[in-house]
């Protein structure tokens, strides 16, 4: 498949208290951004188990974006700080194994940053588009279900 024909599927996990509202703001502000993302609302970026991310990749998503509150803004005081450590480790592991770093991305988007939200989605979509379809780790590719 040529890059320009390829429309990736991207899973986004958005924190209820910031990025999810940021997405809302982008919407009511009529900002344009690609439609490749599917959104799952979570109570906090600290709720994200790395297993969720791996599971998305295994199920055929070409990229995953996790977006939470800026440092200092966590509704639960420190959920995003703990998540940040966890994501750093996950990112190292995936990259070391040879999975393209662009597949799994992280951002801080506050409820007031509708503009930033649309930019982040555009950037991530563009990056994943360049990488092409996810092949590593995908179950459908080599699985029994086929």
């Amino acid at each position: 498949m040529k890059t320009k024909d390829f429309e990736p599927k991207i899973m986004t996990f958005l924190c209820n208290w910031c990025s999810y509202a940021g997405a809302d703001l982008a919407g009511v502000s009529r900002l344009q951004y690609p439609t490749n993302t599917r959104v799952i609302r979570v109570p906090c970026s600290g709720r994200i188990d790395p297993l969720f991310i791996l599971k998305c990749l295994q199920d055929g998503y070409d990229g995953v974006l996790i977006s939470g509150c800026h440092p200092g803004d966590c509704h639960y005081i420190s959920g995003n700080y703990v998540a940040r450590r966890r994501f750093a480790i996950l990112k190292t592991a995936l990259e070391f194994m040879g999975i393209e770093p662009g597949r799994v991305q992280f951002s801080w988007v506050s409820a007031g940053e509708g503009e930033k939200f649309s930019q982040v989605i555009s950037k991530v979509t563009e990056a994943v588009k360049v990488l092409g379809p996810m092949r590593k780790l995908v179950k459908a590719a080599n699985s029994l279900v086929g």
Binding site: L51, K55, Q58, I89, L94, L137, V138, K139, A141, L144
Partner: peptide, 24 residues
């Protein structure tokens, strides 16, 4: 969460998560 057979992607996810759980 993951298949229990010896499908390669399931196995790899087991190994990645095992390492993440023992990180630090």
């Amino acid at each position: 969460w993951i298949g229990k057979g010896n499908d390669l992607s399931d196995t790899i996810i087991f190994h990645i998560v095992r390492v993440l759980h023992t990180a630090g």
